Amino acid sequence: MHGPALSGWLLMVLCGVAGAYCLSRAHHGTAEERSAARAEAVMGLGMAAMAVPAVLFTPPPWAWALYALLFGGAAVRALWFLRRGAGRPQHLHHLHHLVGSLAMVYMAAAMAPGAGGGGHAGHGAAATAGGVPLLTGVLLVYYAVYVLTSAGRLIPATATAGGPKPGVFRGAQPELTPACRLTMGIAMFAMLLTL
């Protein structure tokens, strides 16, 4: 990504950990939970790969086309599940995956060498931001709202009759899933800021 190497390292680590956690969830739960975990693992690990700082690895020019194909496939998969699950509770989750996958295709295209955006962070001294400002702005607003609403759901509600209700971090593994999704939303917002 464009921007300081430290932010690239932080994004890489956060997305890598979130992606690895989602991959570990892909073996447990219902078929729908495993499917969602696989989609989130692809997103997290793909975001980690795109955020690798240039000082660690300089991707070949074709890597951006590979990212676009990977996330394009993820978008088609999300669209398929969105179409199949219309009216079900997971409908919004599939829509979020579709938006995220398309945003990653957009970022891969904007970061590709010769796309007017310069390429990977730190590659070339004259790398400038790329992308369509209006589309980037719309995606930034979407992810800002997503992060704020997701963070609000992580805060435990106070019971009127007594102390606080148990929060999402009760120690059970499924409760980390919303925090993982929030982390990837924050990372996506940060990646969009660097375009």
Rank of each mutant, 00 (worst) to 15 (best):
H28L: 10
L79Q: 14
L95Q: 14
A5G: 07
A49M: 12
R84P: 01
M191H: 09
G85C: 12
A65V: 07
G114K: 08
A36D: 10
G44Y: 02
L98D: 05
M184G: 06
G29P: 03
R170W: 00
E175P: 00
L98W: 05
P174E: 14
L69N: 10
L135V: 07
V138Y: 07
A86H: 06
G130R: 11
A190E: 02
S35T: 09
R88N: 05
H28W: 14
P174T: 13
T194S: 15
T160V: 12
S7Y: 02
A41K: 01
V105P: 05
E32K: 12
G152Y: 00
L134D: 12
A172Y: 03
P133H: 07
A20W: 03
A103Q: 03
T194K: 00
A75P: 02
I155A: 06
T177W: 02
H91V: 10
R77Q: 15
P89A: 14
V52G: 06
T136S: 15
G117D: 05
L98Y: 00
G85D: 14
P60T: 11
G44N: 06
V17N: 09
A121F: 01
A86M: 05
P166I: 10
T158V: 05
A151P: 00
E32V: 11
I186M: 08
A26I: 04
A75Y: 08
A126P: 00
H93I: 14
T183W: 00
L66Q: 03
G119R: 02
V132C: 12
Y106N: 15
V141T: 06
A125W: 04
L176N: 11
R34T: 05
Y142K: 11
R153T: 03
Q173G: 06
H28K: 15
V132I: 09
S150P: 01
G185S: 07
G8R: 01
P178K: 10
A125V: 07
G118R: 01
A161P: 00
R34F: 04
A39M: 13
T30C: 05
G119Q: 05
A48L: 03
H94E: 15
A74P: 01
Y67L: 14
L195P: 04
V168N: 08
L14S: 10
V147D: 10
M107Q: 11
P60E: 15
P61Q: 14
L139G: 09
A110F: 01
L70W: 01
S7F: 01
A121M: 13
A18G: 05
H96R: 15
V138L: 15
L182K: 06
A74K: 07
A159F: 02
S35R: 10
A51R: 02
F169K: 08
L154M: 10
A108C: 10
A179P: 00
T194G: 14
G100A: 15
Q90W: 10
V52W: 00
A157P: 00
G185R: 03
E40V: 04
V105A: 13
A18Q: 05
G116D: 07
G87K: 14
R25G: 04
L10N: 04
W80C: 11
S150Q: 12
L182G: 07
V13H: 09
R84F: 03
A127V: 06
V138W: 04
